[in-house]
Design a protein around this nucleic acid. Structure first.
Length: 209
DNA sequence: CCCTGATTCGC
DNA sequence: GCGAATCAGG
């Protein structure tokens, strides 16, 4: 398989969207993730963290590089499905998964029936992949609902390092189990639950006080 | 063991 | 330029 213009374009787009090399490789077909990674490097878009130059820290240290953080317009008042916040039974095996990146846990309890968000479905309009919303996407929630139906419903004892540890149901009742689907990377949850459990990046910066 | 990207180096 | 093999990490 050759890197045609079209394929390169797909590669660029997906990589820009944050897709992993293996995912892109599967999408393209005929190439391995190594090929994708190699191409990514050759294209010079390895990571978006390209330090232009190593500057001496002594010079203009005070030159604060104004964060190019484009504040996404968040007109939605964050429909927070409130529910039993007292269940603090965080399933934590003996594994200490220390995350370095500052992520924030979403305030979405498990097992709660998610309030269906408004989904402006426009017929015939394949909404383009627009990564904007910093709140939990309706798709993610819908996915979780679907996942929890098809979850493996494993017990606490059946949890392993690569089973989703997302609790479903009420721990105080018999109707309680864990998702059990295969986890993604080093995360404690499957992909669907990861997308709900973690906020992608900057959520809100209310540091005004 | 599963996955991730990064790098090397023969082709 | 390409990508398998390898490396380094979660």
């Amino acid at each position: 398989m050759a890197w045609t213009d079209e394929r390169v374009e797909t590669l660029k787009r997906m990589w820009g969207e944050g897709a992993s090399a293996s995912t892109i490789a599967k999408e393209l077909g005929g190439v391995t993730r190594n090929a994708v990674i190699g191409k990514v490097h050759r294209l010079g878009l390895s990571n978006r963290n390209q330090n232009k130059e190593e500057e001496a820290p002594a010079a203009a240290a005070a030159a604060a590089p104004a964060a190019p953080e484009v504040v996404p317009p968040a007109p939605e008042p964050a429909p927070e499905p409130e529910a039993a916040p007292e269940v603090a039974a965080a399933p934590e095996p003996e594994e200490e998964d220390d995350d370095d990146e500052p992520r924030t846990m979403a305030a979405v309890p498990h097992g709660t029936n998610i309030t269906p968000l408004r989904k402006p479905l426009m017929a015939g309009q394949p909404l383009p992949p627009q990564p904007s919303a910093n709140e939990i996407s309706a798709e993610a929630l819908a996915k979780v609902n679907a996942v929890e139906k098809t979850a493996k419903k494993i017990s606490l004892m059946e949890l392993t390092e690569r089973t989703c540890k997302w609790p479903i149901g009420d721990p105080a009742t018999e109707k309680f189990w864990f998702c059990g689907l295969p986890v993604q990377a080093g995360k404690p949850y499957c992909e669907a639950h990861v997308s709900v459990a973690f906020q992608p990046m900057s959520s809100r910066r209310d540091r005004r006080r």
